[in-house]
Protein backbone atom coordinates (compact mmCIF):
# COMPACT_ATOMS: atom_id res chain seq x y z
CA UNK A 1 0.00 0.00 0.00
CA UNK A 2 1.40 3.35 -1.00
CA UNK A 3 0.70 7.06 -0.55
CA UNK A 4 2.53 9.10 -3.18
CA UNK A 5 6.02 7.61 -3.14
CA UNK A 6 5.87 6.21 0.38
CA UNK A 7 4.87 2.63 0.96
CA UNK A 8 2.85 2.53 4.17
CA UNK A 9 2.39 -1.23 4.36
CA UNK A 10 5.02 -3.86 3.53
CA UNK A 11 4.59 -7.61 3.47
CA UNK A 12 1.63 -7.46 5.82
CA UNK A 13 0.57 -11.08 5.61
CA UNK A 14 -1.92 -12.78 7.91
CA UNK A 15 -4.98 -15.00 8.00
CA UNK A 16 -7.95 -15.12 10.32
CA UNK A 17 -9.87 -18.36 10.92
CA UNK A 18 -13.66 -18.43 11.20
CA UNK A 19 -14.73 -17.54 14.74
CA UNK A 20 -11.33 -16.17 15.69
CA UNK A 21 -10.80 -12.84 17.46
CA UNK A 22 -7.77 -11.12 16.02
CA UNK A 23 -6.34 -7.93 17.52
CA UNK A 24 -4.22 -5.55 15.49
CA UNK A 25 -1.93 -3.50 17.75
CA UNK A 26 0.58 -0.82 16.94
CA UNK A 27 1.52 2.81 17.53
CA UNK A 28 -0.35 5.61 15.77
CA UNK A 29 0.63 5.79 12.12
CA UNK A 30 1.68 2.13 12.01
CA UNK A 31 -0.87 1.35 9.29
CA UNK A 32 -3.65 -0.27 11.35
CA UNK A 33 -6.45 1.85 9.91
CA UNK A 34 -5.08 1.52 6.38
CA UNK A 35 -5.01 -2.27 6.77
CA UNK A 36 -8.57 -2.37 8.09
CA UNK A 37 -9.89 -0.04 5.40
CA UNK A 38 -8.37 -2.20 2.67
CA UNK A 39 -10.07 -5.26 4.18
CA UNK A 40 -13.38 -3.37 4.47
CA UNK A 41 -13.21 -2.52 0.77
CA UNK A 42 -13.10 1.21 1.53
CA UNK A 43 -9.60 1.75 0.21
CA UNK A 44 -7.74 0.34 -2.79
CA UNK A 45 -4.36 -1.30 -2.31
CA UNK A 46 -1.45 -0.52 -4.61
CA UNK A 47 -0.17 -4.11 -4.65
CA UNK A 48 -0.63 -7.50 -3.07
CA UNK A 49 -3.41 -10.03 -2.65
CA UNK A 50 -6.37 -9.68 -0.28
CA UNK A 51 -9.24 -12.08 0.26
CA UNK A 52 -12.03 -11.47 2.76
CA UNK A 53 -14.67 -14.21 3.08
CA UNK A 54 -13.27 -15.64 -0.14
CA UNK A 55 -13.69 -12.43 -2.14
CA UNK A 56 -11.35 -9.59 -3.11
CA UNK A 57 -12.87 -6.58 -1.28
CA UNK A 58 -11.77 -4.23 -4.09
CA UNK A 59 -14.33 -5.76 -6.44
CA UNK A 60 -16.84 -7.12 -3.94
CA UNK A 61 -20.60 -6.80 -4.42
CA UNK A 62 -23.45 -5.96 -2.05
CA UNK A 63 -24.00 -9.64 -1.16
CA UNK A 64 -20.47 -9.67 0.28
CA UNK A 65 -21.14 -6.34 1.96
CA UNK A 66 -24.13 -7.92 3.74
CA UNK A 67 -21.84 -10.52 5.39
CA UNK A 68 -19.52 -7.86 6.83
CA UNK A 69 -20.18 -5.72 9.89
CA UNK A 70 -18.29 -2.48 10.41
CA UNK A 71 -18.37 -0.59 13.67
CA UNK A 72 -17.82 3.01 12.65
CA UNK A 73 -16.76 5.71 15.07
CA UNK A 74 -19.89 7.82 14.97
CA UNK A 75 -19.73 11.51 15.49
CA UNK A 76 -22.99 13.32 15.04
CA UNK A 77 -24.72 11.48 12.20
CA UNK A 78 -28.43 10.62 12.52
CA UNK A 79 -28.67 12.89 15.58
CA UNK A 80 -32.41 13.39 15.14
CA UNK A 81 -33.16 9.68 14.78
CA UNK A 82 -34.38 7.62 17.70
CA UNK A 83 -32.20 4.67 18.67
CA UNK A 84 -34.80 2.03 17.87
CA UNK A 85 -35.84 3.74 14.62
CA UNK A 86 -32.24 3.85 13.36
CA UNK A 87 -31.55 0.20 14.23
CA UNK A 88 -34.77 -0.91 12.53
CA UNK A 89 -33.87 1.11 9.46
CA UNK A 90 -30.32 -0.24 9.26
CA UNK A 91 -31.59 -3.77 9.82
CA UNK A 92 -34.13 -3.52 6.98
CA UNK A 93 -31.33 -3.62 4.38
CA UNK A 94 -30.27 -7.11 5.54
CA UNK A 95 -33.67 -8.82 5.29
CA UNK A 96 -33.00 -10.43 1.86
CA UNK A 97 -29.80 -12.10 3.09
CA UNK A 98 -31.11 -14.86 5.35
CA UNK A 99 -34.07 -15.89 7.50
CA UNK A 100 -32.32 -14.95 10.75
CA UNK A 101 -31.51 -11.47 9.44
CA UNK A 102 -31.71 -8.81 10.65
CA UNK A 103 -31.05 -9.43 14.32
CA UNK A 104 -34.40 -8.66 16.08
CA UNK A 105 -34.07 -5.12 17.37
CA UNK A 106 -35.27 -5.80 20.91
CA UNK A 107 -32.78 -8.65 21.38
CA UNK A 108 -30.00 -6.54 19.93
CA UNK A 109 -30.83 -3.57 22.17
CA UNK A 110 -30.71 -5.89 25.16
CA UNK A 111 -27.41 -7.40 24.01
CA UNK A 112 -25.69 -4.00 23.86
CA UNK A 113 -27.43 -2.68 26.97
CA UNK A 114 -29.48 0.04 25.27
CA UNK A 115 -33.00 -1.18 26.05
CA UNK A 116 -33.68 1.77 28.34
CA UNK A 117 -32.53 4.26 25.68
CA UNK A 118 -34.53 2.79 22.78
CA UNK A 119 -36.81 5.82 22.46
CA UNK A 120 -34.08 8.40 22.98
CA UNK A 121 -32.78 10.62 20.18
CA UNK A 122 -29.28 9.63 19.12
CA UNK A 123 -27.80 13.03 19.86
CA UNK A 124 -28.90 12.87 23.49
CA UNK A 125 -26.89 9.67 24.13
CA UNK A 126 -23.73 9.73 26.23
CA UNK A 127 -20.42 8.90 24.54
CA UNK A 128 -20.48 5.33 25.82
CA UNK A 129 -24.11 4.78 24.80
CA UNK A 130 -23.37 6.13 21.34
CA UNK A 131 -20.47 3.75 20.98
CA UNK A 132 -22.75 0.86 21.93
CA UNK A 133 -25.20 1.99 19.28
CA UNK A 134 -22.32 1.96 16.77
CA UNK A 135 -21.65 -1.62 17.78
CA UNK A 136 -25.33 -2.52 17.47
CA UNK A 137 -25.45 -1.06 13.94
CA UNK A 138 -22.36 -3.09 13.07
CA UNK A 139 -24.07 -6.23 14.34
CA UNK A 140 -27.64 -5.77 13.10
CA UNK A 141 -27.02 -7.79 9.91
CA UNK A 142 -25.53 -10.69 11.91
CA UNK A 143 -22.17 -10.40 10.17
CA UNK A 144 -19.85 -13.34 9.70
CA UNK A 145 -16.93 -10.93 10.04
CA UNK A 146 -16.90 -7.86 12.25
CA UNK A 147 -14.44 -4.96 12.09
CA UNK A 148 -13.94 -2.98 15.30
CA UNK A 149 -11.66 0.03 15.09
CA UNK A 150 -10.76 1.16 18.64
CA UNK A 151 -14.14 0.15 20.01
CA UNK A 152 -13.83 1.21 23.66
CA UNK A 153 -12.29 4.68 23.31
CA UNK A 154 -14.08 6.87 25.84
CA UNK A 155 -15.71 4.00 27.80
CA UNK A 156 -15.80 4.05 31.57
CA UNK A 157 -14.52 0.87 33.27
CA UNK A 158 -18.00 -0.60 33.78
CA UNK A 159 -19.06 0.02 30.17
CA UNK A 160 -15.74 -1.46 29.02
CA UNK A 161 -16.31 -4.62 31.05
CA UNK A 162 -19.84 -5.03 29.63
CA UNK A 163 -18.55 -4.47 26.13
CA UNK A 164 -15.83 -7.09 26.58
CA UNK A 165 -18.41 -9.63 27.73
CA UNK A 166 -20.54 -8.83 24.66
CA UNK A 167 -17.65 -9.33 22.24
CA UNK A 168 -16.47 -12.51 23.93
CA UNK A 169 -20.04 -13.84 23.75
CA UNK A 170 -20.34 -13.00 20.05
CA UNK A 171 -17.21 -14.90 19.14
CA UNK A 172 -18.19 -17.89 21.28
CA UNK A 173 -21.95 -18.16 20.55
CA UNK A 174 -22.38 -16.72 17.09
CA UNK A 175 -19.07 -17.87 15.61
CA UNK A 176 -18.43 -14.31 14.44
CA UNK A 177 -14.89 -13.64 13.26
CA UNK A 178 -13.66 -10.36 14.72
CA UNK A 179 -10.80 -8.11 13.71
CA UNK A 180 -10.20 -5.33 16.20
CA UNK A 181 -7.66 -2.55 16.64
CA UNK A 182 -7.01 -1.05 20.03
CA UNK A 183 -4.51 0.87 22.11
CA UNK A 184 -5.79 -0.79 25.26
CA UNK A 185 -3.44 -3.75 25.85
CA UNK A 186 -5.37 -5.40 28.69
CA UNK A 187 -8.37 -5.31 26.33
CA UNK A 188 -6.40 -7.08 23.60
CA UNK A 189 -5.09 -9.64 26.14
CA UNK A 190 -8.63 -10.32 27.33
CA UNK A 191 -10.43 -10.53 23.98
CA UNK A 192 -7.98 -11.71 21.37
CA UNK A 193 -7.22 -15.29 20.42
CA UNK A 194 -4.31 -13.96 18.45
CA UNK A 195 -2.47 -10.64 18.33
CA UNK A 196 -0.64 -8.98 15.46
CA UNK A 197 1.74 -6.15 16.23
CA UNK A 198 2.15 -3.71 13.38
CA UNK A 199 4.96 -1.13 13.42
CA UNK A 200 5.95 1.19 10.59
CA UNK A 201 3.84 -0.79 8.13
CA UNK A 202 5.25 -4.23 8.99
CA UNK A 203 4.05 -7.06 11.20
CA UNK A 204 6.78 -7.46 13.82
CA UNK A 205 5.16 -10.13 15.98
CA UNK A 206 2.19 -12.44 15.99
CA UNK A 207 0.88 -14.98 18.48
CA UNK A 208 -1.46 -15.56 21.40
CA UNK A 209 -1.19 -13.06 24.26
CA UNK A 210 0.69 -15.73 26.27
CA UNK A 211 3.07 -16.42 23.35
CA UNK A 212 3.94 -12.76 23.16
CA UNK A 213 4.55 -12.27 26.87
CA UNK A 214 6.75 -15.35 27.10
CA UNK A 215 8.61 -14.42 23.92
CA UNK A 216 10.39 -11.54 25.58
CA UNK A 217 13.06 -12.10 28.23
CA UNK A 218 12.07 -9.69 30.94
CA UNK A 219 12.61 -10.28 34.67
CA UNK A 220 9.75 -11.14 37.01
CA UNK A 221 9.14 -8.77 39.86
CA UNK A 222 9.06 -10.59 43.25
CA UNK A 223 8.05 -8.77 46.48
CA UNK A 224 7.62 -10.07 50.01
CA UNK A 225 8.11 -9.13 53.63
CA UNK A 226 10.13 -10.87 56.35
CA UNK A 227 8.93 -9.51 59.66
CA UNK A 228 8.92 -5.75 59.25
CA UNK A 229 11.42 -5.72 56.37
CA UNK A 230 10.22 -5.39 52.75
CA UNK A 231 12.10 -7.04 49.86
CA UNK A 232 11.91 -6.60 46.08
CA UNK A 233 13.86 -8.65 43.51
CA UNK A 234 14.03 -8.74 39.72
CA UNK A 235 14.43 -12.44 38.84
CA UNK A 236 14.40 -14.02 35.36
CA UNK A 237 12.85 -17.28 36.58
CA UNK A 238 10.73 -16.69 39.65
CA UNK A 239 9.56 -20.25 40.43
CA UNK A 240 12.89 -21.74 41.77
CA UNK A 241 13.55 -18.46 43.55
CA UNK A 242 10.26 -18.63 45.46
CA UNK A 243 10.84 -22.33 46.31
CA UNK A 244 14.24 -21.47 47.75
CA UNK A 245 12.73 -18.53 49.62
CA UNK A 246 10.19 -20.75 51.42
CA UNK A 247 12.80 -23.48 52.05
CA UNK A 248 14.94 -20.91 53.81
CA UNK A 249 12.37 -18.82 55.72
CA UNK A 250 9.20 -20.94 55.84
CA UNK A 251 6.24 -19.21 57.47
CA UNK A 252 8.16 -15.99 57.99
CA UNK A 253 7.56 -15.11 54.31
CA UNK A 254 4.52 -12.79 54.11
CA UNK A 255 2.70 -10.66 51.48
CA UNK A 256 4.26 -12.53 48.56
CA UNK A 257 3.66 -11.00 45.11
CA UNK A 258 5.05 -12.27 41.81
CA UNK A 259 4.51 -10.12 38.71
CA UNK A 260 5.26 -11.66 35.34
CA UNK A 261 5.77 -9.38 32.32
CA UNK A 262 2.41 -8.20 30.93
CA UNK A 263 1.33 -7.91 27.33
CA UNK A 264 2.11 -4.23 27.69
CA UNK A 265 5.75 -5.02 28.59
CA UNK A 266 5.98 -7.37 25.62
CA UNK A 267 4.37 -4.84 23.29
CA UNK A 268 6.70 -2.02 24.34
CA UNK A 269 9.75 -4.27 24.06
CA UNK A 270 8.73 -5.38 20.55
CA UNK A 271 7.79 -1.93 19.28
CA UNK A 272 10.86 -0.22 20.76
CA UNK A 273 13.07 -3.01 19.45
CA UNK A 274 11.93 -2.19 15.92
CA UNK A 275 12.17 1.55 16.30
CA UNK A 276 15.69 1.66 17.80
Amino acid sequence: MRYGDTDVLHEVSFQARAGEVLALLGPNGAGKSTTIEILEGFRLRSAGRVEVLGVDPAGADERWRARIGIVLQSWRDHGNWRVRELLEHQGAYYAPYGADRPWPVDDLLAAVGLTASARQKVRTLSGGQRRRLDVAIGLVGRPELLFLDEPTTGFDPAARREFHDLIAGLAADQQTTILLTTHDLPEAARLADRILILTAGRIVATGTPTDLTTSITAPHDVRYTLGVQQFQHQILDSTPFVQALFAQHGDAVQNLEVHRPTLEDAYLALVNGVQS
Binding site: R65, I68, D77, Y93, Y97, G141
Partner: peptide, 8 residues
Amino acid sequence: LRAKATPY
Protein backbone atom coordinates in the same frame (compact mmCIF):
# COMPACT_ATOMS: atom_id res chain seq x y z
CA LEU B 1 -20.06 6.23 5.19
CA ARG B 2 -22.72 4.33 7.13
CA ALA B 3 -24.77 4.06 3.95
CA LYS B 4 -21.71 2.77 2.14
CA ALA B 5 -21.09 0.11 4.80
CA THR B 6 -24.66 -1.21 4.33
CA PRO B 7 -25.74 -3.45 1.42
CA TYR B 8 -27.35 -1.14 -1.17
